[in-house]
């Protein structure tokens, strides 16, 4: 068989051949069954051991847990520390050591406001504080505390609760943490409130 005959003979085989004698050909049928068997096995195996193509499944016998992305709760103290030290926030006036600056910014360490009623500190952070305020027997009045709620830095309830919980246990303070729910409740009560004064706050129980 030379090259020309080789090409011609096989060319004919690939073309459609009229099935004149209605000859039954077993081979294609057998191959169809073999192929189907392989595909069946492949599909079953793939479905069973693929871990649903999850990139975090390393054991083929496990399946993803199906609860979707895990709801991660950050540590409120760690979040608070980060918020305290974020740009332009608390630390720039009250100082990283919580001592403030005598005559200008009141200290947070040992402050009766910080360690006092949660309802008051939440209000101060949410809406700010203006006018003279007495801390540890000294009067501060030159500076204005900005609002961190929706009219100012626009921190979330979780962030405000975090930063308050942080300052209430740092630098020797030993007060209870503030919960996110508490912040949310007060935010709803005091919507659109301007900066607080000492007198207003003393009225809050």
């Amino acid at each position: 068989m030379n090259d020309g005959e080789l090409l011609e003979a096989h060319e004919k085989l690939l073309g459609r051949q009229p099935d004149d004698r209605a000859k039954y050909r077993l081979l294609p049928l057998v191959m169809l069954f073999v192929l189907s068997g392989c595909v069946l096995f492949a599909a079953t195996y793939l479905n069973r051991y693929s871990g649903h193509f999850d990139r975090s499944i390393f054991n083929e016998n496990l399946l993803p847990t199906g609860s979707g992305p895990v709801d991660l709760k950050p540590d409120p103290i760690a979040l608070g520390r980060r918020m305290f030290n974020s740009g332009g926030a608390c630390y720039s006036c009250h100082q990283p050591n919580g001592q403030g600056i005598p005559g200008a910014y009141p200290p947070l360490a040992g402050s009766e406001w910080v360690n006092g009623a949660g309802a008051r500190v939440v209000r101060i952070v949410l809406d700010g504080l203006q006018g003279p305020v007495h801390v540890g027997g000294k009067t501060f009045g030159a500076a204005v505390m900005p609002a961190f709620g929706s009219s100012g830095f626009n921190w979330s309830d979780e962030q405000i609760a975090g930063v308050l919980s942080y300052v209430r246990q740092e630098w020797g303070n030993k007060s209870k943490p503030i919960s996110t729910d508490e912040v949310a409740k007060i935010r709803a009560l005091t919507a659109d409130h301007k900066a607080w004064s000492e007198a207003d706050l003393l009225g809050v129980k």
Binding site: A42, I57, F58
Partner: peptide, 22 residues
């Protein structure tokens, strides 16, 4: 240390190659 589906797909592929060899 690879996601389980990578070896699984390879195993499936080597079974699907059987018709080729036949």
């Amino acid at each position: 240390p690879v996601p389980a589906w990578i070896p699984t797909i390879a195993i499936v592929a080597s079974v699907l190659l059987l018709p080729h060899y036949i």
